Computed example of a mutant assay.
Amino acid sequence: MFYSPDQRKQDCLLRAIKGKGAFRRFKDNIIDLGLEDQWYSYRSKCYKEIAIEWCRENNIEFID
């Protein structure tokens, strides 16, 4: 079976998030795979979307 580089990265990260020490393994792996900047950018975007949705649901004004 052929695995693309992205599939290998995905498999590596999926293994990292299982069991005790998952957070540390995940962080170490995103650094090793050169994905740290992409991960933190993605995470920030998701947090922002969650916050905006919460503000809208609770009729709270926000500045984007």
Rank of each mutant, 00 (worst) to 15 (best):
R25K: 11
C55K: 12
G21V: 04
D11N: 11
D64A: 08
Q10K: 15
E36A: 15
I17P: 00
A51S: 07
F62M: 08
L35M: 15
K48L: 13
Y40F: 15
L14S: 08
M1R: 05
D37Q: 15
L33F: 07
C55L: 06
I50C: 01
K20E: 05
L33Y: 06
N58P: 02
I50R: 05
P5M: 12
F23G: 11
R8W: 10
I52A: 03
N59D: 09
A22N: 07
C55Q: 09
K27C: 00
Y47H: 14
D32H: 07
L13D: 02
I31K: 12
R43T: 04
D37P: 06
E49W: 04
F23D: 00
I52H: 00
D37R: 12
N58A: 06
Y42T: 06
Y40S: 07
I17V: 11
E36R: 13
R8F: 10
C12I: 05
L33V: 03
S44G: 13
Q38A: 15
D6K: 11
Q7G: 09
R8C: 14
D11Y: 12
L13P: 08
D11G: 10
E57D: 06
A51D: 02
K45S: 10
D64S: 14
I52S: 03
A16K: 02
C12P: 00
F26N: 01
Y42V: 04
F26Y: 11
I17D: 00
N29P: 04
S41K: 13
R8M: 13
Y40G: 05
D11P: 01
K9Y: 07
D6L: 15
A22V: 01
Y40T: 09
F26G: 04
A16R: 03
M1N: 04
K48D: 06
L14G: 03
G19C: 01
A16N: 01
G34S: 07
Y47P: 02
G34W: 06
L33I: 04
I63D: 14
R24F: 06
D11H: 12
C46H: 14
L33S: 05
E49D: 12
K27S: 10
F62C: 05
Y47W: 12
S41W: 06
C46D: 05
I17L: 04
R56D: 10
D37W: 08
I50P: 00
R24D: 03
R8H: 10
D28N: 13
F62L: 05
A51N: 01
D28E: 11
E36F: 14
R56N: 12
I30Q: 05
I17N: 02
D11F: 12
I17M: 10
N59G: 05
I31M: 05
K45T: 15
K18E: 00
I60P: 02
G21N: 04
L13K: 06
N59C: 09
K9W: 08
K27I: 01
I30M: 03
E61I: 09
L13G: 05
K48G: 07
Y47Q: 14
E36G: 09
F62K: 11
K9D: 07
I30V: 15
R8S: 08
C55Y: 12
K45W: 07
I17Q: 08
Y3R: 13
W54F: 14
